[in-house]
Design a protein around this nucleic acid. Structure first.
Length: 451
DNA sequence: TCTGGGGTCCTAGGACCC
DNA sequence: TCTGGGGTCCTAGGACCC
């Protein structure tokens, strides 16, 4: 354990909402809620003005609306948040080369890695205030809260104590006493289920936890969790700050406004998800061997099915074909509220031409507009790709009674808006996307281990 | 007014191998 | 011919985080 409080945890205050208030002056000083705005939406971030009404992260947007009807409800603009996040992280890296981002709005900084030694509480406070000032400058006025201590655990907990816009430095040597009076749930990793188990053993505060025998703790909550929690309770935390953590999985999922029973629609959605997963793998220069399909039923029970290939792939057609097979094996029952496709067992190298298709690798998605002949307008089926001059590219969600419903994709909110057209609307043209076409049999079966 | 989307890590059982 | 023990891989599910 280090002797000075040289681990910093930086947390941007109400990040998504703060960015929206920064960019739209009319929202400043007013309640702002960023998250899913549909019927099954959930709050990502509430501004401090909205929190006064009891609006919280992870709350359903419906509940947020009933608590604070006059707030502004906004869909997240991830690309904008990513830009600000990059600028803020760059300021942190100017302070120390060892920065570990935890999400867009949070990171650890190890000051020892920049050669600073024997830092006093005053030194660290001054560094933290300078950092907050430079963050404010590069981000157009965003505030951050900073915690500092001799370990990640202490820094993380400290950053939460004086939000927003605060600085809390915990002196070396005072860590166990600092933690003792707090609820066990302040320790990251102790959620509702663990708290419930601990409570049955009479443990509510960290002080209670400090008294508990390690063997007893392991019996209550399992070996890995018990051992680490026993150490964290007495502030024995030597986890290093690690930059460049490797990605372990890439996935896409979507909760539908209403449950879906139609298997052909589910297949069309799974194909698109496979395409998006493939695009993200390629962008990150990754490939993976295990494809997982996730389904959430109407009653919220969640199932996963996975299949591991003989070698890694980033090919949308291979991913889609495995996803389809896994989906076929999945129960649809009374309807599915969520579908997801993911790839894991990642390698940072890509299986070469032995198994993948050259032409496809170079042209992962190609959009070809077909001429709009009247007879092309009939026979829209779920998943059929279409284009519209005013709305861009989209795909058929459903059709019937002379109308066709199209879902348009936008860069920031992938499920995109849904619009309905007359089935003979000449502006709506059919489009073909190569890549995951149901009728193309790619014939790379040797890639699938258990076929 | 029911519960997002992107992840990480852990557990447990079965297959399979030595 | 009644029965081992360890290691690794795969699958499924669950807890947790932001």
């Amino acid at each position: 354990m280090r002797g000075d409080p040289s681990v910093l945890h930086v947390d941007l205050d109400a990040f998504f909402a703060a960015v929206e208030q920064r960019d739209k002056p009319s929202l400043r000083g007013k309640p702002v809620v960023v998250g899913g705005i549909g019927v099954r939406g959930v709050v990502s971030t509430a501004s401090y003005e909205a929190r006064k009404y009891g609006v919280r992260s992870a709350m359903s947007t419906a509940e947020a609306r009933s608590r604070c009807p006059h707030a502004a409800y906004l869909s997240p603009r991830f690309e904008v948040y990513r830009q600000s996040s990059r600028a803020v992280m760059a300021e942190m890296r100017a302070l120390s080369p060892l920065v570990e981002p935890l999400s867009l709005d949070e990171a650890f900084i190890d000051l020892a890695a920049s050669g600073l030694r024997g830092l006093t509480v005053d030194d660290v406070e001054a560094i933290a205030r300078d950092l907050k000032e430079s963050i404010r400058k590069v981000s157009g006025g965003l505030t951050a809260s900073v915690g500092a201590g001799t370990s990640k655990l202490i820094a993380k907990i400290a950053s939460d104590l004086d939000k927003p816009d605060g600085v809390v430095v915990v002196p070396a040597g005072t860590e166990a006493d600092f933690l003792a009076p707090m609820q066990v749930t302040v320790i990251p990793g102790v959620g509702p289920a663990t708290a419930q188990r601990l409570s049955m053993a009479g443990v509510r505060t960290v002080a209670d936890l400090q008294q508990l025998d390690e063997d007893e703790l392991v019996r209550q909550i399992g070996s890995a969790h018990g051992t680490s929690l026993h150490r964290l309770a007495v502030a024995a935390d030597d986890r290093p700050v690690v930059s460049d953590r490797e990605t372990k999985s890439v996935s896409v999922e979507d909760t539908f406004e209403t449950d879906i029973i139609d298997r052909s629609l589910l297949v069309a959605i799974a194909d698109r998800m496979s395409l998006r997963v493939s695009e993200r793998l390629r962008k990150a220069q990754l490939s993976g061997r295990t494809v997982t399909v996730k389904t959430r039923m109407h009653d919220f029970t969640t199932h996963t099915r996975s299949s591991t290939l003989a070698g890694p792939t980033d090919d949308s057609r291979v991913i889609a074909r495995v996803a389809r097979r896994l989906l076929e094996e999945s129960e649809v029952g009374g309807g599915i509220r969520l579908l997801g496709v993911g790839v894991s067992s990642l390698a940072d190298w890509i299986q070469d031409d032995l198994f993948t298709d050259d032409e496809h690798a170079e042209n992962p998605i190609e959009v070809v507009e077909l001429p709009a002949r009247p007879r092309d307008q009939v026979g829209f089926h779920p998943g059929q790709d279409v284009a519209h001059p005013d709305h861009g590219r989209g795909w058929v969600w459903g059709s019937g009674r002379g109308r066709v419903t199209v879902r348009f994709e936008t860069a920031d909110t992938p499920p995109g808006p849904v619009r309905t057209f007359a089935i003979d609307d000449p502006a709506l043209t059919k489009v073909r996307i190569s890549g995951v076409d149901a009728d193309e049999e790619p014939g790379t079966d040797q890639n699938v281990s258990n076929e």
